[in-house]
Amino acid sequence: MRELKEFTIPFVGLKLGQHSFHFEIANTFFEHFEYDEFNTARINLTALLDKKTTLLEFTLSYDGIVNVPCDITNEAFDQEVSGSYHFVVKFGETFNDENEDLLIIPHGSYEVNIQQYIYESIILSLPSRFIHPGIEDGSLQSDILDKLEELSPKQLKDTAEEGAELDPRWDELKKLLTDK
């Protein structure tokens, strides 16, 4: 996958200490990763780089809104997304990104691309199911919700109240429990 240049941070000219980088993440960022679950995305991300003599420490902090369809009704709504992620960049013989919290880049590198870490931290902070807040508080009126309610299985108590008789064999078995 090709790297997006705006997420490549050149660290060779930076002094030791903390440096802050700000990014605005939009839907085009997720389209680059072929992730099309969002209608729109507006996320503000701050990458705090703490440059030390032998390593780089990154802390990604983000918050914003993604517009997603509800998994139950397919109604679009704004889902808040926020979180942070911390990882370390060290220098070694070869490039190695097998560890999720440690990135090893070759000696002599002068920049690091953090797009994969941004993508993974945002996606993993999302809930596994998107449920419209109107469903939880009962304020959403939808034809789909009405149909789901209509087709939902009725409780056994409802059928007993309507006069439907239970199988008489169960009554005989219940007598065995009381005939000790």
Rank of each mutant, 00 (worst) to 15 (best):
residue 158 D to R: 03
residue 85 Y to P: 04
residue 163 G to E: 15
residue 179 D to N: 13
residue 34 E to Y: 05
residue 126 L to Q: 12
residue 94 T to N: 14
residue 12 V to F: 02
residue 31 E to M: 02
residue 106 P to N: 09
residue 23 F to T: 11
residue 38 F to Y: 10
residue 50 D to H: 15
residue 67 N to S: 14
residue 1 M to A: 12
residue 38 F to H: 04
residue 13 G to H: 06
residue 47 A to K: 01
residue 162 E to A: 12
residue 153 P to T: 07
residue 9 I to F: 10
residue 82 S to I: 01
residue 27 N to C: 01
residue 22 H to G: 14
residue 122 I to V: 14
residue 146 D to N: 14
residue 161 E to H: 07
residue 114 I to E: 05
residue 79 Q to K: 09
residue 46 T to S: 04
residue 21 F to M: 14
residue 44 N to T: 10
residue 161 E to M: 12
residue 63 D to S: 12
residue 160 A to V: 15
residue 38 F to K: 02
residue 118 I to M: 09
residue 66 V to Y: 11
residue 168 P to S: 14
residue 15 K to Q: 11
residue 19 H to I: 05
residue 60 L to P: 11
residue 74 N to W: 06
residue 13 G to Q: 07
residue 102 L to E: 11
residue 77 F to H: 04
residue 7 F to K: 00
residue 177 L to S: 14
residue 97 D to L: 01
residue 165 E to P: 07
residue 9 I to V: 15
residue 99 N to P: 02
residue 81 V to H: 06
residue 178 T to P: 02
residue 129 R to F: 09
residue 171 D to H: 05
residue 150 E to P: 01
residue 167 D to G: 07
residue 82 S to E: 12
residue 149 E to G: 10
residue 171 D to L: 11
residue 3 E to L: 11
residue 167 D to C: 08
residue 120 E to C: 02
residue 133 P to V: 10
residue 171 D to M: 11
residue 177 L to P: 03
residue 3 E to P: 00
residue 90 K to A: 14
residue 130 F to L: 02
residue 163 G to M: 10
residue 135 I to E: 02
residue 147 K to F: 14
residue 123 I to E: 08
residue 57 E to P: 00
residue 75 E to C: 05
residue 28 T to I: 04
residue 161 E to N: 13
residue 169 R to I: 03
residue 10 P to I: 08
residue 177 L to T: 14
residue 67 N to L: 10
residue 134 G to V: 12
residue 103 L to V: 13
residue 78 D to H: 05
residue 13 G to R: 08
residue 33 F to V: 00
residue 117 Y to F: 10
